[in-house]
């Protein structure tokens, strides 16, 4: 079983997240591997362990700091780490990012075929959930997205997909792109041994030239959407917190009635 997991470097959810010149600020100590990508790493490690053989790659696309995302994946136990870093990638939209990831997947696939690419269901910075579909289309592989369960049997992958109107079971032949939800598994914690081992593991760094991608076909210039304004929302005024000393429910009701909400 050969699996590649995509991991994104995002601002920590608990930090003060912000925009700089139309893009999410992704620098410094407040960045981390996207939390939902822990579920992707876990899914890959479990499949490898169940198969008793195989290799797991972690791949990230982003600036210098993004290497922290693949380092985290190494601590969790993946075998190889790849960081695609090139100034020309900055400002890419989902289609640019998918193009870059697809080229890296194909490069690894050319060395020895991959069975699966596993991604998180969403990056918790933009929350668009578009990359997995774009990547499957770009690779022309099957798309098995929003998996809350994943099994592989021979050359077929099957997922369970919980949609508001139905629970679907969807199958496809390998290779496939799978995105997993946070229901899919419980991510493991890195243990001391793996943390130590991860320190000395190499990270392969590729540029666009290594992937044969023309710089002008990705990045801000090729993006189909442009952030023209980003501003923090003013904090709410008129906030009230009362302590219930026997009349809290009445106060709550009166507030709703006054606002025309009850």
């Amino acid at each position: 079983m050969r699996i590649l997991v995509t991991v994104k470097f995002v601002p920590d959810l608990q930090s003060q997240r912000s925009f700089t010149e139309g893009a999410v600020t992704r620098t410094g100590d407040d960045g981390t591997m996207n939390e939902l990508d822990e579920n992707a790493v876990e899914a890959a490690l479990q499949l490898k362990e169940a198969a008793g053989e195989g290799e797991v790659y972690a791949l990230t696309v982003g600036g210098d700091d993004a290497v922290a995302a693949v380092r985290k994946a190494l601590q969790l136990g993946v075998d190889h780490a790849v960081h695609v870093s090139d100034a020309a990638v900055a400002g890419s939209d989902v289609f640019g990012t998918a193009k870059v990831i697809a080229a890296a997947v194909e490069k690894i696939n050319d060395e020895a075929p991959l069975d699966l690419v596993i991604t998180g269901m969403a990056a918790l910075d933009g929350l668009t959930s578009m990359l997995p579909t774009a990547l499957a289309a770009e690779l022309d592989w099957a798309q098995l997205t929003l998996a809350s369960g994943l099994t592989v049997d021979g050359s077929t992958a099957t997922i369970v997909r919980h949609l508001p109107d139905a629970h679907e079971t969807v199958s496809a032949s390998l290779p496939a792109v799978v995105s997993v939800t946070d229901e899919a598994n419980k991510p493991r914690y890195p243990n001391f041994k793996l943390i130590m081992a991860a320190r000395s593991k190499p990270v392969t760094t590729w540029t666009l030239a290594d992937l044969g991608i023309a710089p002008e076909s990705v990045g801000a210039g090729a993006a189909r959407t442009v952030v023209v304004d980003a501003s923090p929302r003013p904090p709410k005024e008129d906030r009230t917190v009362v302590t219930d000393t026997g009349e809290g429910g009445v106060a709550l009701a009166d507030f709703l009635i006054e606002r025309g909400l009850a």
């Binding site: 709410k236 906030r239 302590t243 809290g248 429910g249 709550l252 009701a253």
Partner: peptide
């Protein structure tokens, strides 16, 4: 982030709020 908050047990606060809304 609440416009209006009540520090209290929901088992006390919610039934009282329901009764009040019905009364009004």
């Amino acid at each position: 982030i609440a416009d209006f908050g009540v520090v209290g047990d929901l088992g006390d606060v919610i039934p009282q709020a329901i009764a009040r809304i019905k009364e009004v």
